[in-house]
Amino acid sequence: MKISLELKGLLEDPESVKLLTTTDKDGVPHTVLKGSLAALDEDFLAYVELFEGSRSQKNMLHNLWFKKLVTIAVCKGGLAYQIKGEPYRFIIEGALRDSFFKEVWKRMPEANPSGVWLIRPKEVIDESYETQLKKEQDRINYSIWFQYLGRP
C-alpha cells in the first residue's frame, strides 16, 4: 500500500491533527496524539516515541510481536485519512533516528526519546467529508433514504 502525495502533504502540515491508536494484549485500544508522525517515503510512516514506558510503546511492541495492526488518523479541515498499518521496526540507532531526534530536541531539548517507530501501511482510507459523502451518495437511493427530512 503506497502513501499518496496528498496524504504525505497532510502529514507534513504542522496544523494537522495526528492520532495513533494501538491495542494492548486484551485488545483494549489506546489513542494518543503523535505530532512527529510523518511519511518517510511511499512505503513507511514514522514517529518518535518519547518514552520507553508509555502505554503506546508497550502496545506497539505487543502489536509488532503478535502482528496486530495499529490505526493512524490524520485530519485538517475537510481532509482526513485513516491508515491501518503494521508496526514494522523500532529504530534505535542510525541516521533516521538522528534526524527525528534532532527535530524533537529543537522543541524539547530536555527530552530523551526512546526511538523511532516505522509503520507499514496496509490500508489507507480516505475519510474526507467530500469523499465519504460521495460514497454515501453513491448508495442506491441515497436521496430517498438517507436524507434527514426537515433539516434546518
Partner: peptide, 8 residues
C-alpha cells in the same frame, strides 16, 4: 546488532 523490535 538489533532486531526490528529494537532487541539488541
Amino acid at each position: 546488532f538489533c532486531f526490528n523490535d529494537g532487541t539488541c
